[in-house]
Structure formats: structure tokens, C-alpha cells
Design a protein around this nucleic acid. Structure first.
Lengths: 137, 137
DNA sequence: TTTATTGCTTGCATAATGCAAGTAAAATAT
DNA sequence: ATATTTTACTTGCATTATGCAAGCAATAAA
């Protein structure tokens, strides 16, 4: 899989960028719940703190995973959008969901949805990517 | 993908168990580098601290992701082995590696290995699982 | 019995997170 | 033009997690 540990090990490289609970939850919110605004992330049930949210959004932006711009429909807000680099994180988010759904006896994951993922991951991912097609320009 | 956030969201559920850098690195060491002993994990290039290592191994064990027993070949040491639950984390580890290899310009990931994964993830995972076949008893 | 090894544990400093109040900038209302 | 509201942070402080390095208990081996 990889030839060595440390700085340029692909896994370590990735984890240095997004290997913490809050970053991954933000990515979930963007990729699955279509959240785009600061206050939407703030409202997630896990209750992220404002300073942590600001910090993580800033980092994800500086890593080129999300972009931040004025919301055209509401100039008082910013929207945070996934980049291509972000969309490439979908398989990770999905696999984390699959594992969680399998091992949490009280999972909220809808069975039909999970079945759809397990049946054809590529197709499922493609459907989500299609949602963000406006990025391809 | 999931129907809601918070406690029984499959992603949050997973992240509460292994959603931190150190846990994921330990899992990498187990699943890819075939490390089994405490001091082997300690030697990884990322330089985990003894207290963090002990803490994480303990948690992973209590979550049923690894098992701990006396090493039959060397009674002075414990071996930490992956459970089935651990093997089911392979897709996650793999996808993290794929993303990291793609976006790290200086990645150490061997191209042939990455190509093999991209070509057929299932087969690649099956090969790794075969390595741990002794678990099936 | 003594020694060596192993896997932690501990004390302390530093860094990160969490809580809640505060604030600056910009858009909108008056 | 000024006042108000909203948004996205920022800040101060308490708590928790991590990191460093020394220490130690248990166990196996000499």
C-alpha cells in the first residue's frame, strides 16, 4: 500500500490534513447534508464550537478542499463549497459510514440507503458528484 | 447516506471510536505493516508517545477492534491482532491512502501498488484479508 | 536470586478543545 | 446618512488532550 511511514506516507499525509473528528464531520455536512453556511455547520447535532469551526474551515480552505465565497443570494453570508479535492474524499466518508452502520446496533443509517451504497459504490459516488456538477467550470 | 446527525449517525459513531490521527495510524500499522507488538508501534516514524499509544491500544481493544494476548513465541510480549471488525476498516484505510497518494506531490506510495488498488479494490482487500486468515477460527 | 525486558504509568509542560461572551465588518433598514 | 441587524468570527478562560522524559511494576529469562 505504501512504502514507509512518516512525512510522505499517504495515510499520514492525509491524516495531517483531515484526520480529526471535526474536520471529517464538516466534510460530511458538506458532502451529504449540502450545508454551505457557517451557521449551518454550527447547528449540527454534534455541537462544534465556534472557534473550532472557524479554525477547521480555515484549514480546509487553505488546503484547497473547500472554497469560500460570498453567497450571491445573500450577501451577508459566505458559502463554503467543495472543491474537486473535496469530492475525492467521498469514498472515505462513505466507507466510514458503511462501517459505522454495520457496527452500531442503533444506527440511524437508512437500510435502503446503505444497501444502495453496498450494491454499487461507484454509482452512488457518481450521483453525489453529479449534484456538485456546477464545480466543473 | 445517513438520516441525521449526532449520536447514531454512522459517521459520528465511527469517528467517536477511531476518528483521531493516532488510532488510524495504529490501524495502518496493524493492517499494512503487520505490526503486532507495543514496541513496534512505538517505533513508527510519526513518534507516538507511550501514554497515547497505551491509551489508544486500550480503547481499540475495548471497542473490539483489536485483541491482545500473550505472544506464544515470546512470553514477555503481547501481540495485538486485528479482529474482523478491524479488517472491515480496510476500505477506509485504503481510501485514505488513495487520496493521500493522489494529492501529495512527494508521496512515498509506490505507483504500482496504488495502481493495483485503483484497479481492483475488492481484490486488493481480499489479499490483505487472506493474510489474516488465521482469525477465522 | 538477580537481571533484563516489556508495557505501561506518572509528573509536568504545552497545545487543543469547549464554553460563553464579545466584536468587527458588512448588509440592510430607517 | 445613520442606526440596526446579521454574520462570522475572536477572545478570555477553564478543562482536556497531547507530548516529553523519567519512573516503575510485572514477568520472563539468566
Amino acid at each position: 500500500m505504501n512504502d514507509g511511514e512518516g512525512k510522505n506516507c499517504p495515510i499520514f499525509f492525509s491524516l495531517e490534513i483531515f484526520g480529526d473528528k471535526w474536520s471529517l464531520l464538516i466534510l460530511r455536512d458538506i458532502l451529504h447534508f449540502d450545508k454551505q453556511h457557517y451557521n449551518e455547520f454550527l447547528e449540527s447535532d454534534e455541537g462544534i464550537s465556534t472557534n473550532i469551526l472557524a479554525d477547521r474551515l480555515k484549514k480546509l480552505e487553505s488546503e484547497g478542499i473547500i472554497s469560500k465565497e460570498k453567497d450571491p443570494d445573500n450577501k451577508k453570508q459566505f458559502i463554503y463549497s467543495p472543491t474537486k479535492k473535496c469530492l475525492d474524499l467521498l469514498p472515505i466518508i462513505l466507507e466510514i459510514a458503511v462501517w459505522g452502520a454495520k457496527y452500531d446496533p442503533e444506527t440511524k443509517a437508512p437500510p435502503e440507503e446503505m444497501a444502495k451504497i453496498r450494491k454499487n459504490r461507484k454509482e452512488y459516488i457518481q450521483d453525489i458528484r453529479a449534484k456538485f456538477q456546477y464545480l466543473d467550470q
